Simulated scan of single mutants.
Amino acid sequence: MLNDEIVDEVRAIRDTHAAKFGYDPRAIYEDLKKSEAEHIAAGHPFVPPPSVPPVPNSSLQRTRFARR
């Protein structure tokens, strides 16, 4: 498998962030939610996730994961 420098950089950042909280998922989540709230308060746009998953609109999308 080829190494992608962007993926490696994102993983390094994620690992550094997780290490800062002792790899505690609850603490990591709370920090991310706090950061999200600060960005929203600063006026950055926030797009909530869809309440219903999107419906596939092509046969390719419907069968893409069918063989797994």
Rank of each mutant, 00 (worst) to 15 (best):
A18L: 07
L2I: 05
E38N: 14
H17L: 11
T63S: 12
T63P: 10
M1A: 12
Y23K: 05
R67V: 06
Q61F: 14
R64P: 02
T63I: 12
I40W: 00
G22C: 12
P53R: 08
R26N: 14
P25M: 02
H17K: 14
K34I: 08
P25C: 04
H44K: 15
F65G: 04
F46V: 04
I13G: 00
Y23G: 01
P54F: 14
V47H: 08
I40C: 11
I6Q: 10
P25Y: 10
K20D: 05
N3S: 07
A42L: 11
V55N: 09
G43W: 03
L32M: 09
R26C: 06
I40L: 10
H44S: 09
R11S: 01
P45W: 09
T16F: 09
D15G: 00
A66V: 13
H44T: 14
P25H: 05
E30D: 15
A12N: 08
E36N: 06
S35D: 04
L60N: 11
V47K: 15
A66F: 03
P48A: 15
I13F: 10
A27C: 08
E5M: 08
A19Q: 03
H17C: 00
T63E: 13
I28Q: 07
R62Y: 08
P45K: 06
P25E: 00
V47G: 09
K20C: 07
P50R: 14
P49K: 10
D15W: 02
T63M: 04
S59T: 06
E36C: 02
P53H: 15
P54L: 01
T63D: 13
S58W: 03
R62G: 05
V10Y: 02
Q61K: 08
V55A: 04
A41R: 10
L32Q: 08
S51F: 12
R14H: 10
R26S: 15
P54C: 05
V55W: 05
R14N: 08
E38I: 00
N3H: 05
R14D: 05
D4M: 02
A37N: 04
Q61T: 06
D4N: 07
I6S: 12
E30Y: 14
R14I: 02
R62V: 13
P49E: 15
V7P: 01
L60D: 08
P53W: 14
T16M: 09
A37S: 05
